[in-house]
Computed example of a mutant assay.
Amino acid sequence: MKKLVLFLTIIFMTMSYGQEIKQIPQINVNGEGKVKVAPDQVCISATVETKGTNVKEVKKQNDEKIDAVLKFIKKMNIPTADFKTKQVALNPQYDYDKKKTNYNATQTIEIVLKDLTKYDEVMEGLVQQGINRLDRVTFESSKIKQYETEARKLAIKDAKAKAEDYVSVLGQKVGKAITISDNTQVYHPQPMYATMRMKESSDAMGASNETLAIGEIDITANVSVSFILD
């Protein structure tokens, strides 16, 4: 009997608590904060890809091209900490029609170029030294964390301003925030040819002779906020 009384008491308290929470007047709004900044660095992911029927020769050619690429990068006075080998692969590919095995060697170098005035020269030089595939070119800001913080603060201010607009005609005031959800997604601009495969000819990067209009990075924060109404 005592257990039954205790059980009913807990159920009653839980129901009362739930009803009390539901009765709290509140408003749910979304807020957006946006900061526009000019990129001050670019991340380049570039690959040397070599194919052939002789595995030793394929690897040798690939290594020689990578060696030339690394020497060029150092010649451009890019700090050692700003470039690294990202991926190395040597794979057999069997041709069922010709009944023979070909080999595909790839090495990927990732470079963070912090002097954008060197961009065209670096891109042209990479291709001339053997790079024949650009996997990714992303323009970034070295102060991204700082700008993300600014965007989040602006998003919260925007949410509160919206809430105040809605309740101003009701004679109520916006109180404390009770829940905040971050719905932010970060986007980095990329040039159109960032993922294209290039020819090995010297004119493969003709587009890189032109100055890119990279514009600005939109750093946007989106939040959902629930405010108590006083």
Rank of each mutant, 00 (worst) to 15 (best):
M1I: 05
T9Q: 05
Y17E: 04
Y17H: 15
E20W: 15
I21K: 15
K22P: 08
P25E: 05
P25V: 00
P25Q: 01
I27D: 10
V29H: 00
V29R: 01
N30M: 11
G31I: 00
G33D: 01
V37M: 00
V37K: 03
A38C: 08
A38P: 05
A38T: 13
P39V: 02
V42R: 02
C43P: 14
I44W: 06
V48F: 12
E49D: 14
T50R: 09
N54I: 08
N54G: 10
N54V: 12
K56E: 15
V58N: 09
K59T: 12
N62W: 13
A68Q: 11
K71F: 09
F72S: 10
I73L: 13
K74I: 10
M76V: 02
M76N: 14
I78Y: 01
I78E: 14
I78N: 09
F83L: 15
K84D: 15
K86L: 15
K86E: 14
Q87E: 11
L90H: 12
N91C: 08
P92M: 09
P92N: 07
Y96W: 13
D97R: 09
D97Y: 11
K98G: 12
K99P: 06
K100L: 13
T101R: 10
N102F: 15
Y103I: 10
Q107G: 05
E110Y: 13
I111N: 06
I111V: 14
L113D: 04
K114L: 06
K114M: 00
D115S: 05
L116V: 01
L116A: 04
T117H: 06
K118Y: 01
K118V: 00
Y119T: 06
Y119S: 08
V122D: 10
E124V: 14
L126M: 11
L126A: 09
L126Q: 10
Q128S: 15
G130N: 10
I131G: 04
N132A: 06
R136Y: 15
E140S: 01
K143W: 00
K145R: 11
K153L: 06
L154F: 03
I156T: 06
K157D: 11
K157M: 01
K160E: 12
K160S: 08
A161T: 03
A161H: 02
K162P: 00
D165L: 11
Y166A: 02
S168A: 07
V169R: 15
L170R: 10
G171M: 08
K173W: 02
V174I: 05
G175H: 06
G175Y: 01
I178Q: 12
N183C: 04
N183V: 03
Q185F: 14
V186K: 02
Y187G: 14
Y187V: 14
P189H: 07
P191Q: 08
M196S: 10
R197T: 03
K199I: 07
K199L: 10
E200Y: 08
S202H: 03
A204L: 06
M205I: 13
G206N: 13
A207P: 05
N209R: 07
I214V: 09
G215F: 03
E216I: 01
E216R: 09
E216V: 08
I217N: 02
D218N: 14
D218G: 11
V223M: 04
F227G: 12
L229C: 01
